[in-house]
């Protein structure tokens, strides 16, 4: 009688601890998972410059030279500028709505050159770059609203290309002077 009962009990595998095992694994992966999407400022580096070759000529008025020193002071075309005015000045330079002789001929021709020194902390450099990217983001958004009455982020690929052609992002990161 006793023997028969034991046989019957062992016929089924006890699966109740399966959940415990699965939970343990689940908690392990929950703890180790980091769902962090990498965010940042995307850039495309230019190809290395051939030292024997002269850089292509750029007209002075199409070039906005931004100099930043290691304490975060900014010069825009030889003019000291506080950081919160940088974006507005850039937008004016790129668009040049009044056809000012000293600003860019057209948005397509505008080049923003960013130059700093070797001692500049990365934070200041990124803040500066952020302002430049911000100016372009503003202009592209504006163009998107004018042409497609939608925000830039909601445009499809072809529409984005059209807007990008209106305001091409030409940012040059100048090498710091060797000391």
């Amino acid at each position: 009688m006793l023997l028969k009962k034991r046989e019957r009990e062992s016929a089924e595998i006890n699966g109740s601890s399966m959940a415990d095992i699965a939970f343990l694994l689940l908690i392990f992966f929950l703890v180790t998972t980091t769902i962090n999407v990498d965010t940042g400022i995307g850039m495309v580096l230019p190809p290395p410059l051939d030292p024997t070759e002269e850089p292509p000529p750029v007209r002075e008025r199409n070039l906005m030279k931004i100099l930043v020193n290691e304490t975060g002071l900014i010069m825009m075309d030889e003019e000291p500028t506080p950081i919160d005015e940088v974006q507005n000045k850039l937008i004016e330079f790129i668009k040049n709505p009044e056809g000012n002789e000293e600003l860019s001929i057209s948005p397509q021709a505008a080049i923003v050159s960013l130059k700093t020194v070797r001692q500049t902390p990365y934070r200041i450099y990124i803040d500066m770059l952020d302002e430049v990217i911000g100016a372009y983001a503003f202009l592209r958004n504006e163009a998107a609203n004018e042409n497609f009455s939608r925000d830039y982020s909601q445009l499809n690929k072809e529409q984005k290309d059209i807007v990008d052609d209106i305001y091409p992002k030409k940012i040059s990161i100048a090498e710091p002077d060797p000391e």
Binding site: D38, T39, G40, I41, G42, M43, V44, L45, P46, P47
Partner: peptide, 12 residues
């Protein structure tokens, strides 16, 4: 640049 890896991203 010399390695031809031009696409970069400043992580922030």
């Amino acid at each position: 640049k010399k390695a031809q890896t031009f696409r970069i991203n400043y992580s922030t």
